[in-house]
Amino acid sequence: MPTAQDIHTLLRFLSQDAKVPLAQAMGKVKELQKAGLGTPSEIAKSDIESIKSIFTDEKIAKQVLNTAKRVSKKRAASDTPSITTPKKSKRSYGSPLSPPELEESLALPEPCMDEDVLSKTIVYTNRAPLVLAFVLTLIKYTMPGQPLSSRLSLAQAVVSVNSRAKAVSLGLESGNRADEEGWGEGQPVCKIMGREIRVMKRWGYQWKEMKDYDASIESGGGTENFNEQPPLWGVDLEALKKSNGPVTPGSASSSQLPIYTAHSARAYILRSFGSPKLESEETEPSPANKKSNAETAVVAEREKNLGLLLGALELLLQSWSTILTKEELDKRAWGWYVRIRPEVESGVAGWGGKGNVKLADILSLRRQETR
């Protein structure tokens, strides 16, 4: 049975060496160990199809496999563990697309608001992407002036901060958080779902016609502080800490700060909500063309499930948004999430574990109108 140290070592390899986002790495540790791929050397001896069956994204699967081979090769040549030092490279967060085109490229499945369908739907997932979906929808009501790109970035920031805190509480990570050591000091702070997130203001980012932008703000209600915010990026303080600068309070341009990118958050959420039958059933090897068709069907099923989940969350938040302030809505959101999150084993054993989420449970949290 894997020990806490085994889990910690594998998680460190995925997140630090293979550069897999921490929240995603958490969700894959248990699957890798179940498949007999609990160490870099075991992963290195595997093949791309085996890795891809776990990570689904071919690019990330190749990244994990190639890193495992490189790390294993270095360790074979020396008795001392190999430590991969992050390369200092110039990171760019810009896009050749215009703001409206960027927002369009991030489009998610349309939320399904059919209560009959939602009440019968169950999705199979782990907790991190559920937090992401919850925050993504919550921000529409608490910060209505934020475009989809900002909502994705901010939601991923909340997931990462929450995952880091959980990892520390389980003993899988140690040391102070980046914000506790002063990284990001001087950057604005935004409190979302009970978590304080350092943000970067995107001055001049006009993502739709100004008259439409003004109308969306005016219709949002709530406190003026939220409405006056320009579009935001969530700042990745842990990445800033690992790169060792160069930004310090009062120096350099904030454009050099690493951020949680909208496209990576979108890719993560699109592939995270399966159906219980699809996720739990074992399948026999099939010819390449049949396998390709099956994979396409799984992708379509997950995107459909995301639309259903987003619809249920919309109905929940809509029901309360008319009587609660934005601050009150934000305060209540974590409690709602806790009540509907998938059940997993306690402690380290449940790290990254998956379970069922009944959308009927989300609908049951809606405000009951009195007559």
Results as ranks from 00 to 15, higher is better:
17 D>I: 01
110 E>P: 04
15 S>H: 14
364 S>I: 03
97 L>Q: 14
112 C>S: 13
5 Q>D: 15
182 G>M: 15
337 Y>C: 04
236 D>P: 01
197 I>E: 01
67 T>L: 06
290 K>S: 05
257 L>N: 15
159 V>I: 15
148 L>S: 00
259 I>F: 02
38 G>R: 03
45 K>I: 08
226 F>E: 14
170 L>S: 04
181 E>W: 01
123 V>R: 06
349 A>T: 07
356 N>D: 15
4 A>H: 01
151 R>P: 03
102 L>W: 08
21 P>R: 08
12 R>Q: 06
128 A>R: 13
155 A>F: 03
103 E>M: 03
243 S>P: 00
255 S>A: 15
3 T>M: 03
161 V>L: 08
222 G>I: 04
78 S>L: 07
21 P>M: 09
63 Q>H: 09
273 F>L: 04
151 R>N: 10
151 R>E: 08
211 K>C: 05
249 P>D: 11
299 V>E: 04
214 D>A: 07
302 R>S: 04
14 L>I: 13
189 V>A: 07
84 T>P: 04
367 R>I: 04
121 T>L: 06
76 A>C: 02
227 N>W: 06
324 L>H: 09
154 L>H: 02
325 T>F: 09
160 S>A: 08
209 E>A: 09
44 A>E: 00
147 P>S: 02
132 L>R: 05
28 K>L: 11
150 S>Y: 01
218 E>M: 03
274 G>R: 13
174 S>V: 07
313 L>E: 10
107 A>S: 15
78 S>C: 10
194 G>K: 06
208 K>C: 08
245 G>K: 00
182 G>P: 15
121 T>A: 11
363 L>P: 06
13 F>G: 09
198 R>P: 10
140 K>Y: 02
133 A>D: 01
13 F>N: 06
43 I>W: 00
100 P>K: 11
176 N>F: 07
22 L>A: 12
205 Y>S: 00
371 R>P: 05
303 E>T: 06
217 I>E: 01
265 A>Y: 12
199 V>L: 05
60 I>C: 06
92 S>K: 07
39 T>W: 00
88 K>F: 12
156 Q>Y: 04
208 K>F: 01
283 T>G: 00
18 A>S: 10
272 S>P: 07
77 A>D: 14
108 L>N: 07
269 I>K: 04
174 S>L: 03
14 L>F: 15
127 R>S: 13
109 P>Q: 04
100 P>Q: 13
162 N>P: 00
307 G>S: 02
43 I>C: 01
115 E>A: 12
316 L>Y: 05
122 I>A: 13
297 A>R: 14
345 E>W: 00
362 I>N: 01
47 D>I: 10
270 L>A: 06
326 K>S: 07
78 S>R: 12
282 E>W: 10
348 V>C: 14
98 S>D: 05
33 Q>D: 13
